[in-house]
Amino acid sequence: MNTIDGLTVHHHRDYTGAKIGMWVFLFTELLLFGGMFILYSVYRTVHAEDFHHAAMELDTLVGTMNTLILLTSSLTMALSIALIQTGRKKSSILCLVLTIAFGLWFMVNKYFEWGAKFEHGLYPGSEFLLQHSQGEILFFGLYFTMTGLHGLHVLVGVGVLSVVGFKMLNKPYEDIVFAGPGVDKLEGAEIALLGKSGQKMWSSEVIDDSVERVSVRLKYRPVGKRVRKEDYALLENSGLYWHLVDIIWIFLFPLFYLIT
């Protein structure tokens, strides 16, 4: 909420509010994965040896590569937000596209990784897996569910970022709304659109006391000075989501790939 000449201006979006909402949503994601981390830590404690054994089946190289991919995607995501805040929309969108590309790359790697496991007959409920010890069955049960759920989140993230990118491509607009105490100062005024020679093309009725709000919609290209963080709350919040997905992977990676 800003003030222009004593008038209260409402921007429709509450930037901090949106961010609070997003963080709280991230907590639910944290606890969702948290439930599985509880299961993991319990079974890891009970079947430590089997888990060591089973983890050897996983390809550390692919895991490491995927870690690097996601970390780098987090960098491009953060850069994308930093760029839009300084008004460089094109570079910002480029970074966003890179982030999406990294996300897809991660999923392609996952696809081949899972595919190889399936070829070896290693998948939940497979006869080959059931011949293994209980700890190993549990390890792969958890491996497939946790990385599967994580992969699903990566896909959702890619989807969300694509939508945001598309929205950014279309020029943003903002509504400046005059309302609340002080709007009566506009009484008697009117709003007009003028042509090249100053002729009136359109004008509103005179603002009287029946007017509750005056709203002006502006379209603009982002320039450093003109970009307000409110306009890119969406990008920032999807960025938060993307980073959380990265954090989950930061834990999944050592817990599954590095305990050999």
């Binding site: 987090s74 960098l75 995501m77 953060a78 960025g239 938060l240 980073h243 959380l244 990265d246 954090i247 930061i250 834990f251 990676f253 050592p254 817990l255 590095l258 305990i259």
Partner: peptide, 21 residues
């Protein structure tokens, strides 16, 4: 090695939280 893995992961997560987020 398990301890190191978990500690390092926590530090990494913290870094992402504090700077990227």
């Amino acid at each position: 090695s398990v301890l190191v893995a978990v500690v390092v992961a926590t530090v990494k997560a913290g870094v992402v939280l504090y700077f990227f987020m």
